[in-house]
Amino acid sequence: MVQKIDMRSTLLSLTILFVGVFIWHAATHVPDTGPTGVELSQGEMDTLLGKNMLSEDIEYYATQGVEFAQLEQIASLNLSRSMIEAAGGIQALGISAPDENSAPAPGSLFPSPTQIGKELWATIADPFYVAGTNDMGFGIQMGYSLLRVLIGYSLSAAVAIPLGFLIGMSPMFYKALDPFIQVLKPISPLAWMPIALFTIGDSELSSIFVIFICSLWPMLTNTAFGVANVRSDWVNVARTHELSTTKTALTVILPAAAPTIITGMRISIGIAWLVIVAAEMLVGGTGIGYVVWNEWNGLRLDRMIVAILLIGVVGMLLDAAFARLQRAVAYAE
């Protein structure tokens, strides 16, 4: 039964993917980028023939998309087609004519799935190239972002979890710190950015600080909640076994509250990954968030979309890692 559901869900996922890609493809498809032929009226034809231009040459250039005005210029050169070609074509002689690049694109400017696929493949094939400050492999940029998240998040966990224990175990501390937490928690992480930039000065450290502050609250409140709600029976077991407060915290309360704490950490890593992209857009320099903004400014939508896609994949992997950790500490009552 489960297998059947798994199979069906996979089938449905693939269908949605294919339909989505197909709609994307259809919306961005450019059918033919070559020049379209020009239809000449009988009067224009007669004028050109009157200037001693061969009818087969007129027909040839017209199908190349050369307009009447330019055809008149060609006629006034009074050269045969073979001579023009030998001189390097009409463009070489200073007459503007459409080529493959100047043909108007009938479709959208938005990159098609095939373009994204190509760009994605190029990124995967060479993720760590450095060709200049604004042209680095996405692997390197992703590394910058991950490093910032790692530092900010670790600092945050080092503060939030012990503090959460304190708040959870002591009603006095809970009451004393609760107003501050309630006011600071709803502040958007990016609102801290100007304060950080002004006080810290360094943009690198500022984005790490923003990661720190946005990861703090879910971990803090979840740890405090988990610790405060450990079943009193288990605490009584620790008490009747004369365990010290530290030992009780480590051997009874920590494993009992671990699932709630990890849930908080999982929420935090998600928020940290959301915020780093926005923070890097703001401060610039390096990082995958900066890449998105940089490629947008350069109108390389294909590279921008690949970067966005990679942000999603890395976020998913981070979440999956914490989901695994969550399963490891889970227990059934």
Partner: peptide, 28 residues
């Protein structure tokens, strides 16, 4: 206060659910 000299068996067993039966006894 509580003491190891007074062992308690609670009605709802009060075993630590993340430990095996053996580890629960070893805990005590």
């Amino acid at each position: 206060g509580p003491s190891l000299d007074r062992g308690v068996v609670f009605q709802n067993y009060s075993l630590l659910p993340w430990l095996s039966a053996l580890k629960n006894v070893m805990f005590g």
